[in-house]
Design a protein around this nucleic acid. Structure first.
Lengths: 234, 234
DNA sequence: ACAAAAGTGTTAATCTTACACCCATGT
DNA sequence: ACATGGGTGTAAGATTAACACTTTTGT
């Protein structure tokens, strides 16, 4: 088979991931301290260059694993940043950004690989970021806000079983709105996708909370038939 | 300034555009007959390789202009296809796909440039497509369906002034639903974004239709303040 | 007994749906 | 006069929004 012509191009392809977690009633963003730059090392998103023989999604998963060992609960492509020619001082780099969620802020420190330091920052206390990563985080934040209202994505930020108030808080915090607790519970429960595990959680002050679980299988079943998890607020 | 290291990578970056038009009560897709392949030349999306010193959006616009001379009414990034290593026989090619709309199916034949042939196909009569372009079109189609219900994107497929029935038809056709004409008109009019131009269009049989116009400026103003053009159907 | 958080129903208002006839023009 | 597509209102049903007190535990 004839090898068809391919153009000369001096463009690198990278991937970056905006990983969100939820802790202390606040949205947290995962950042990595860059290797290069010495004392001026900046914080940046997890990511790196795509290898010639790996898919781009494969590449993000690999980079995230190398840098943090995190176990993701959700991953989707976000947007490709390639309109700015000098986003990266190393040359022309186009990056495919991903949007990821985790339900536990556990970073496995891996001394043997390339990450110097990985840490969680509350979204309103982000340090200065490398490249155009601030813009990428903003886009991811917007995606998160939007998806919360039409996909059951909030559950991916909570542990498998959770008290209902955690869910309430998550929605209030991430959407920046006060939400009527009674109406919220009614709406969520009406889907029939959140089930009572029977367990209770005690320990804190106040009445013990029951623990709930999101029935993901049932959701995926329904989603196939065109069901949309949609929730709106006053 | 020290030149930082950049990896060896043998990946090309391309852009492709799914351009939709609306004519004869049907959604139309713009396709280009590929230059290479001789008698086996296949139809494909408009697109090509990104140049080292141009932005990716710039690249789609350039390619579209070179190949068709089309005047777009809407353009946004769709998705980046880079998980399949052999999507392109020429080697590892990652493509950033764009989603575009036009309100007139006018292709300027440009003999001097690279396009052999460009043509519109109704969405249900697409020929076999090159690479994974079928998948890309499917994704764009899905985006179109989704956006129709929460962004005033349908207007981009109509001429500047249009009879209301065109808008009705467009929604019915593209969403594959029967829509109550009275309710539809009420909902659309309630936004206050579609204004009567006072003109009428006659010529066809039946009562003459008034011509309307979408007030894009007003929409953009409202959109800044968080307004969402949302429309749902029974 | 009190503090702290969890849990729960009803009503009014709004929005959505279903539905059928008259109007203005060309032939 | 009739055929063709354009234009319009109302009533019943469904959904959403507003609102406050009781329950269970720990201290």
């Amino acid at each position: 088979m004839k090898r068809l012509p391919v153009p000369d191009q001096d463009i690198r392809l990278a991937v970056d991931a905006v990983v969100f977690g939820y802790a202390n009633n606040a949205l947290q963003v995962l950042l990595i301290k860059q290797k290069f730059g010495g004392t001026q090392a900046q914080w940046a998103l997890a990511g790196g260059f795509v290898r010639t023989h790996e898919g781009i999604t494969e590449a993000v998963i690999r980079e995230l694993n190398e840098e943090t060992g995190l176990r993701l609960t959700y991953l989707e492509q976000l947007y490709t940043f390639g309109d700015t020619l000098n986003r990266d001082p190393r040359g022309r780099v186009v990056t495919v950004a991903y949007f990821a969620l985790v339900n536990a802020l556990t970073i496995a420190p891996k001394a043997d690989t390339d990450a110097l330091e990985a840490a969680w920052f509350p979204e309103n206390e982000l340090p200065p970021l490398a490249f155009d990563h601030k813009e990428i985080v903003a886009k991811a934040r917007e995606r998160l806000r939007a998806k919360l209202t039409y996909q059951p994505i909030g559950f991916e930020l909570l542990e498998k079983t959770f008290p209902f108030s955690d869910l309430e808080n998550l929605y209030c915090t991430l959407l920046g709105k006060e939400i009527d607790r009674r109406n919220f519970r009614k709406k969520i429960m009406a889907f029939g996708l959140v089930v009572d595990t029977g367990q209770q959680v005690t320990g804190k002050s106040g009445r013990p909370a029951r623990l709930f679980r999101f029935d993901k299988k049932k959701y995926q079943q329904l989603a196939k038939d065109g069901f949309i998890f949609e929730i709106s607020f006053a």
